[in-house]
């Protein structure tokens, strides 16, 4: 009975019972995410935003060191949550911290996103390259900016 229960628990965890589901990428790959990590894990939570400015969770993308390409719908407001997690077995503690931003991708534009976590310092920067015109840095904007 006990091994079976453990197997069921393992299967449930593998199926994503932790709450995170894999983001169903619609294609387009307009986000080019360059990730640099040391002693941390990172994921990107993708949310749509409803008319009342509430985030609607769509899924999570694991960010490994290197380049990850993700597509989010152009012209629609999305809420991106970058989450960094660290844990220390010896210190017996774990923690996670997030950096969020609203983003409404312009049709045809690509977004170069740099995600870094080094020496306990983290940063997310976004640079937009439109189909025509010069690239520009996009400031991060929290959910409050949706209501403005």
């Amino acid at each position: 009975m006990r091994p079976r229960a453990l197997l069921l628990l393992g299967a449930a965890l593998a199926a994503g019972c932790g709450g995170a589901v894999r983001y169903a990428d619609p294609g387009g790959e307009n986000l080019v995410i360059r990730t640099e990590l040391s002693d941390a894990r990172a994921v990107l939570g993708v949310h749509a935003v409803d008319a009342q400015c509430r985030p609607v969770y769509e899924g999570t993308v694991g960010l490994e060191p290197g380049v990850t390409q993700v597509g989010i719908p152009p012209g629609r407001l999305s809420y991106l949550v970058f989450e960094f997690s660290t844990s220390s077995f010896w210190a017996g503690r774990s923690g996670s911290i997030t950096q969020e931003t609203l983003l409404r991708p312009r049709p045809g534009a690509t977004y170069d996103i740099r995600v870094t976590y080094k020496n306990d310092l983290y940063e997310v920067t976004i640079r937009e390259t439109p189909p025509r015109g010069r690239p520009r840095d996009i400031p991060l904007a929290g959910l409050r900016a949706c209501q403005r």
Partner: peptide
Amino acid sequence: SSTACPDMTK
């Protein structure tokens, strides 16, 4: 030299 945020969980 940097505008990175400190991980306040640390």
